[in-house]
Design a protein around this nucleic acid. Structure first.
Ligand code: FES
Ligand code: FES
Lengths: 147, 147
DNA sequence: ATAATTAAGGATAAATTTGTCCTGAATTAT
DNA sequence: ATAATTCAGGACAAATTTATCCTTAATTAT
């Protein structure tokens, strides 16, 4: 559904939302270990999240790392998708037409539209905080570790 | 949602279903023009559809080209996805976990599951014939041409 | 048989995505 | 100030996807 980059962005943000505060910042090493992702690549992605939408913050130096504010924790998942340039995904035609639209629909459109609306609704109502809380509660996961 | 290859596969198959019969085969030139796709690349994809699932047939030589039987026209869209190796897509986790499953779900899973089921239902109930018929009726499109 | 036409198949190229590595800048502790 | 730590940024490399081209094989018409 999304690119690897976006998948890492989602998982990393959830982890930071879970553990990273202004006085408990998390290093890229810990993050990439926790979400099971390549460290350097993940670092790049976090830079994008910081710059594009300021979803996360960071400071260099000892005890430096990444964290989030209460405000950005309340952002919907869609904010991450926007920062990662995946907005297009939600406007993509199943058959690959230039745009998924009512004006020039493909033969899948009428049925797909209904599903697409639910996807958008999901990404706009679920907040980063929700996902972090669910993960904290321990019944869901953000990595592939066996234990 | 799908790769370019799969998008072309879907559009090409719809077009062949619309126009290609055993005594009116369609050449790759006409197909790629009709669906607005790179001819050589499309040819590769049609080979895959022919080999993997026998969704389409072809013959070389003058008046050769591609066509479909009544039987394969009645196949669901999912058959094309299978032939293109996109089965994985319908089993992919939104957050990129190894597998989208009940046993090790991500925090998006409980809500996404419901949407995914609708997607699968759509791909399993819509047949190639349906899509071809809709396109014939003229209110939907399988290319980006302005007219 | 020969020539013409069209798909099949393989090699290769271009573009994009994914991933690594190294140097520099910021911050902190000593 | 100096050294240690950690992010920032850029260059580069690997892998994958997308796309082209050329030769061969199959089929048809003459
Ligand atoms: S136009 Fe194709 S899915 Fe909407
Ligand atoms: S496990 Fe992530 S979407 Fe199902």
């Amino acid at each position: 559904m999304f690119s690897k980059a976006t998948e890492y962005a989602l998982r990393a943000t959830i982890f930071i939302a879970q553990k990273g505060t202004e006085d408990n910042k998390i290093g890229i090493g810990e993050i990439s270990k926790a979400i099971d992702s390549p460290p350097s690549f993940t670092a790049k992605i976090l830079q994008a999240l910081r710059k594009n939408n300021k979803i996360i913050r960071s400071v260099s130096g000892p005890n430096g790392g990444f964290y989030m504010t209460e405000k950005t924790r309340k952002l919907p998942v869609r904010a991450i998708l926007e920062a990662m340039g995946e907005n297009e995904m939600l406007d993509k035609c199943v058959l690959g037409l230039a745009k998924c639209s009512e004006t020039k629909p493909c033969p899948m459109h009428s049925k797909y539209k209904i599903i697409k609306e639910q996807l958008i609704e999901l990404f706009e109502t679920k907040t980063i905080q929700h996902l972090a809380d669910d993960t904290k509660n321990g019944d869901v996961f953000i990595n592939n570790k066996s234990k």
